[in-house]
């Protein structure tokens, strides 16, 4: 299969890419790893008329700590996060990275591209919700930071304006004891998640939960924050009973569809169980 014809440019600086996107407006689309965009173009689900390929902008290929955050540049591949010591600063990010698609896709696909794609079956946006990430969007006229909850608008829809591109996604590194986990149920490596649950816990010095983050994959029309479950946890002392309650609240926040991967009721149960297990794993790494 081959995609519809398009105009192509591959600038070697960020300024060059932003200038091209400014000129193209709605017509321009960023090509990063291409592991979602190229298949969609081949299936004629996407037909951008101009691609601005950022693969030659090596400055954007980083995973590093910056001002108390873990920042992942627009050209960092999933596998760059798998192999990064800095990424271990965020338990939920480093836990999720090896479970993104398969090794070949991880060599090519990018974290920021996946975040921008806003596929509700994509893993990274649940992780970013749990970690309370910020997305850095740049255009030729400047830069702005968008909280992940505002960045995700809907099914395959983000809040970027024409001419803007994601240049980095940053997650705050918790100051106290913290842990995180990404639990993913998949039929086989490389398949989309049947259900995915990202959890992060930050503990106060007295052992109570200072902050909790829970993001859900593939059980709604967009990656979903389980807010009620987070509210139940915040300020409380961790316990198995509390985590089970949070699991039930997360399941109530999900609205899965029956499909080839399983029926809706079963998937909701998986959300409850994976939330409970993820929180237990996050707590274990926070207290180890």
């Amino acid at each position: 299969m081959y995609p519809p014809a398009f105009e192509y440019q591959a600038p070697d600086t960020l300024e060059g890419a932003l200038a091209a996107l400014a000129e193209l407006g709605d017509e321009g689309r960023v090509l990063a790893g291409g592991q979602s965009l190229i298949p969609m173009m081949k299936l004629r689900l996407a037909a951008p008329s101009h691609l601005v390929d950022i693969n030659r902008i090596s400055d954007l290929s980083y995973v590093r700590r910056e001002n108390g955050s873990l920042c992942i540049g627009a050209l960092a591949r999933h596998n760059d996060v798998v192999g990064s010591d800095d990424a271990k600063a965020s338990g939920v990010v480093s836990s999720a990275a090896p479970w993104i698609s398969d090794p070949l896709v991880r060599n090519r696909g990018t974290v920021c591209g996946s975040v921008a794609h806003c596929d509700p079956e994509g893993d990274w946006n649940s992780v970013m919700l749990a970690a309370r990430a910020s997305v850095v969007a740049q255009s030729s006229s400047g830069s702005r930071t968008i909280g992940i909850d505002d960045f995700i608008v809907s099914f395959f829809t983000n809040s970027l304006e024409p001419g803007e591109m994601v240049t980095a996604v940053c997650v705050p590194i918790p100051s106290g004891a913290s842990g995180g986990a990404y639990m993913k149920l998949e039929r086989k490596i490389g398949d989309y998640a049947t259900v995915g649950v990202a959890t992060q816990l930050e503990l106060a010095s007295d052992g109570t939960i200072a902050q909790a983050g829970i993001g859900l994959t593939a059980v709604n029309y967009q990656n979903t924050r389980a807010s009620a479950a987070e509210d139940l946890l915040r300020g409380e002392t961790p316990s198995d009973e509390l985590f089970a309650e949070a699991g039930a609240a997360a399941a109530a926040a999900s609205d899965p569809q029956t499909d080839v991967r399983g029926d809706a009721e079963w998937k909701r149960n998986v959300v409850a169980v994976y939330t409970r297990r993820g929180l237990a794993q996050a707590l274990a790494s926070a207290t180890s």
């Binding site: 591959a10 390929d53 070949l104």
Partner: peptide
């Protein structure tokens, strides 16, 4: 031909990738 099977794997600068999911110009 949809980025699922790996039959088209080649090494690009030593790294294995799916050559059905990369443009030749890249």
């Amino acid at each position: 031909d949809t980025t699922s099977c790996g039959a088209c794997t080649v090494l690009v600068d030593g790294t294995p990738i799916k050559s059905c999911t990369m443009f030749a110009v890249q």
